[in-house]
Design a protein around this nucleic acid. Structure first.
Length: 411
DNA sequence: TCTGGGGTCCTAGGACCC
DNA sequence: TCTGGGGTCCTAGGACCC
């Protein structure tokens, strides 16, 4: 039988731990990173029910002694990179899931460093010694089990699931630990008296599929029976890029919608062009206060990455939706581009070279050159140097540095 | 002042094709 | 007599993850 050669490594309450590392006075105290909204919280704060996404005001009512800090975003990226560089010394097969989590396949390294439990202990020690950060690790035969194990190990622990004890480890655990079981699914399962992964395994697959849909049902049944075929993959290209912005509730005037969408389209377009990618499907999202979110999308004949082009489509979709749904108040706008593909700049250059013409083609080239000029000016003089269409950025609910950390880094 | 921002995947229904 | 069946692409919405 294969051994427990997959590690799931997870930095505990990462942003908050960094703050406590940088400022010893914060250690042992309930802290939250973020100004108006909680972006991350320490274990001491979680203990009071403080969660990310929560307005700071609400967090403070739950925990009056809560200390809020603005956040050292560049430190988060630096320390995260340092930790995963250390992981890379154990094995080249590292799949980063986010800024604070990764899977490692260490099966090829046992002859160098010993078994996976030995490696995991050494890794935790080295990360603590070199960065000062607590790292929890789960070691198991599959990605799923390793991830569950690291959750059980938290905070600051190590859990190794030996291959011949997998079921006895897995089945008593709450169903909530299964990847893909969130609040809604958990509630549906609870209605049927299913609370543990073992109880989940006892449900007939057909019943599960009826309850949760085909894919989710099959997925959950497979995991409950400990069948997880996934391997650790080093790179994964993202399939979409988006940006959104929460707004104080207000009427969706033409000016507000157009300016906000321009800012969002430009944010997305800039990122796309930087990676020399474009996408065919443009989508917008509008949140109506105390109601559902509305979305609209349109798939174009070819991929685009220009800020103006994205903005034009997004604006049409938004106007259409606002009219159709008779929306008179909004509290969020979002733009995303999906169906991503490589090399749009190159394609445009080729089209140019071949003298491809047609309605709007010259205009397209002109806009592409304008985008490129703006991108270059921003590279040289900073982000605020040049704006698109004279858009002035107001105060934002969340700092740009935080947005950047949340972006998927995928190459 | 009941929820921030970046993502992934799935579903149901419709259009369209063979 | 009221009509098969599979495949692909698209749209809107939703659950979930960090």
């Amino acid at each position: 039988m294969a051994s427990a050669d997959i590690l799931h490594v997870d930095l505990d309450a990462f942003y908050a731990s960094v703050e406590q590392l940088l400022n010893p006075a914060l250690r042992g105290k309930p802290i939250a990173v973020g100004a108006g909204v909680v972006l991350a919280s320490s274990y001491e704060a979680k203990h009071y029910g403080v969660q990310s996404g929560m307005p700071t005001r609400q967090a403070r009512s739950l925990c009056p002694q809560l200390v809020t800090v603005p956040g050292h975003f560049s430190e988060y990226q630096r320390l995260s990179d340092q930790v995963f560089d250390i992981c890379g010394d154990l094995t080249p097969i590292v799949e980063r899931i986010s800024i604070d989590e990764a899977w490692l396949d260490v099966s090829g390294s046992t002859h160098l460093f010993g078994d996976s439990a030995t490696m995991a202990r050494a890794l935790r020690k080295r990360v603590l010694d070199e960065t000062g950060l607590p790292l929890s690790i789960g070691a198991a035969r599959t990605k799923f089990l390793a991830k569950v194990a690291s959750q059980v190990a938290k905070p600051d622990g190590l859990v190794v699931v030996e291959p011949d004890h997998e079921m006895e480890f897995l089945h008593p655990l709450p169903v909530r630990l299964v990847w893909g079981v969130g609040p809604v699914t958990q509630a549906k399962l609870a209605e049927r008296g299913v609370h543990t992964i073992g109880e989940l395994a006892q449900l007939k697959p057909q019943a599960l599929e009826r309850m949760l849909g085909d894919a989710a049902g099959k997925h959950l049944n497979a995991l409950a029976w400990n069948r997880d075929p996934r391997g650790v993959e080093r790179h994964r290209r993202s399939g979409s890029m988006g940006a959104q912005s929460a707004l104080p509730r207000q009427a969706p005037t033409d000016e507000l919608v157009s300016q906000t969408l321009m800012r969002l389209a430009d944010r997305v377009g800039t990122r796309l062009r930087k990676k020399d990618r474009g996408g065919r499907t443009i989508a917008i999202r509008i949140r109506i206060p105390e109601q559902r979110a509305i979305s609209r999308r349109r798939t174009l004949g070819s991929a685009i990455s220009g800020s103006d082009a994205i903005h034009r489509v997004a604006l049409e979709l938004a106007h259409q939706a606002i009219k159709e749904e008779k929306i008179h108040e909004i509290s969020l706008l979002g733009v995303s581009v999906s169906g991503l593909r490589e090399g749009t700049a190159l394609q445009l250059e080729l089209a140019l070279g071949q003298g491809e013409s047609g309605a709007g083609s010259d205009e397209g080239v002109r806009r592409w050159e304008l985008d490129r000029a703006i991108d270059q000016a921003r590279e040289r003089f900073g982000k605020e140097a040049v704006g698109h269409g004279g858009v002035v950025f107001g105060r934002q609910s969340v700092p740009d540095e935080f947005r950047e950390l949340a972006e998927k880094k995928d190459d």
